[in-house]
Amino acid sequence: MDLLLSARPGLGCTVVEVSGDLDMATSPQLRDSLQQLIDAGDRQVVVDLGGVGFMDSSALGTLVVMFKALRDVGGRLCLASVQPGVRRVLSITSVDRVVDIYDDVPGAEATCRPRTA
Rank of each mutant, 00 (worst) to 15 (best):
A7H: 07
G12P: 00
L37A: 02
C78R: 12
S94D: 08
G20S: 06
P9D: 15
P9I: 00
L77V: 13
V16I: 05
S57H: 06
D103R: 07
V52C: 13
L63C: 10
V86D: 13
D39F: 05
D100E: 15
G10K: 08
D104G: 03
C78P: 00
V99P: 03
V105Q: 01
L49S: 08
V65K: 08
D21G: 07
P9W: 06
G53F: 05
V64F: 15
L79Q: 05
L3T: 04
V73E: 14
K68Y: 01
G50P: 15
L5D: 06
V98F: 03
V45M: 04
L49N: 08
V89D: 01
S33T: 13
M24L: 14
T14Q: 09
T111W: 02
R76P: 01
R115E: 13
G85S: 08
L22K: 08
V99L: 10
L49Y: 07
L90S: 05
M1R: 10
I101M: 15
P84H: 04
L5E: 09
L30M: 06
V15W: 00
P28L: 04
L37K: 06
G20T: 06
S33W: 05
V105E: 00
R71S: 10
A40S: 13
D48K: 04
G50Y: 09
V16S: 08
V64D: 10
L63R: 04
T14V: 14
R97T: 11
S27K: 11
V15Y: 00
Q83G: 02
D48T: 05
A117G: 08
V64W: 11
E109K: 11
P106M: 12
R113A: 12
D32Q: 15
G61A: 12
A117W: 11
G20Y: 15
S94I: 00
R8H: 09
L11W: 03
R8V: 14
D103P: 07
D32H: 11
I38H: 10
I101D: 03
Q83K: 14
E17A: 12
S58E: 10
G85V: 01
V15H: 01
Q35L: 10
L22F: 14
R87L: 13
V18F: 06
L11R: 14
